[in-house]
Amino acid sequence: MYFPYFASYILIGFVLSLIVFLWALKNGQFREQQRARFLPLEDEPDRAPAPTTRISRLETWALGLLAVAGLLASAAILVYALING
């Protein structure tokens, strides 16, 4: 007998959604829609990123080489598969 679980869930979900929707309606959540569009922008503007140091650039290149090695391993697997597949 599973219907009571499903029916209860539907009923609870429906009632909760309705309560939240009516709260939003009464609370004026649907009124200031033009102002709401700007809410993410009502904050300090982002600053331009600061330049990185020489060491961090070298480190980044080293990591990049490591990543390329990984990519080459992937490519090698593909070639092997194509030749022996």
């Binding site: 649907f30 829609q33 709401a36 569009r37 700007f38 993410p40 922008l41 503007p45």
Partner: peptide, 13 residues
């Protein structure tokens, strides 16, 4: 997206 574009959301409604 609005933050990165520095542009308001097209439509909040």
């Amino acid at each position: 997206i609005p933050r990165a574009c520095q542009s308001p959301l097209y439509s909040h409604t």
